[in-house]
Amino acid sequence: MECAVMGSWGYGIFENDDVLDWKAELLETKGLDFIEATLDNVIKADYIEADLSSNGLGAIEIVAALQGKPGVEIRNKNIYVEGLDGWIKLYAGQGEGLIEAAKIAVKRIKTDSELKELWEDSDEFAEWLKVVRELEGRLSTI
Rank of each mutant, 00 (worst) to 15 (best):
D33Y: 10
F34E: 03
K23P: 08
E127R: 04
S53W: 04
L39T: 03
V131H: 02
A37H: 13
E136S: 12
D40T: 13
V72P: 07
G10W: 00
E25V: 10
G71T: 07
A102S: 06
G58I: 03
L115N: 07
I99S: 05
W128R: 01
E127F: 05
L84M: 13
K89M: 14
A4H: 08
A4S: 13
E82H: 10
N55D: 15
D33P: 06
E96H: 12
E61A: 15
G93I: 14
S122F: 00
W128M: 01
A64R: 03
L20V: 14
A45Y: 04
L84R: 05
R138K: 15
K103N: 01
K116V: 05
K110F: 13
L90D: 13
I48C: 11
I142W: 04
I142Q: 04
W128Y: 09
E28P: 08
W119P: 00
E100R: 10
V5D: 00
A92W: 11
S122M: 03
G12T: 00
K89W: 12
D51I: 11
C3I: 02
K30W: 09
I60H: 00
L26P: 04
N78Q: 13
L139F: 05
K23C: 07
I142G: 01
T29N: 14
L26I: 11
A4N: 09
L98D: 02
D21I: 10
G137P: 06
K110G: 07
A101S: 13
L84D: 05
R133A: 02
S113W: 08
S113I: 10
E96F: 11
K44M: 07
E127M: 08
C3G: 06
I62K: 05
I104H: 00
F14M: 12
G93F: 12
R138W: 02
G93Q: 13
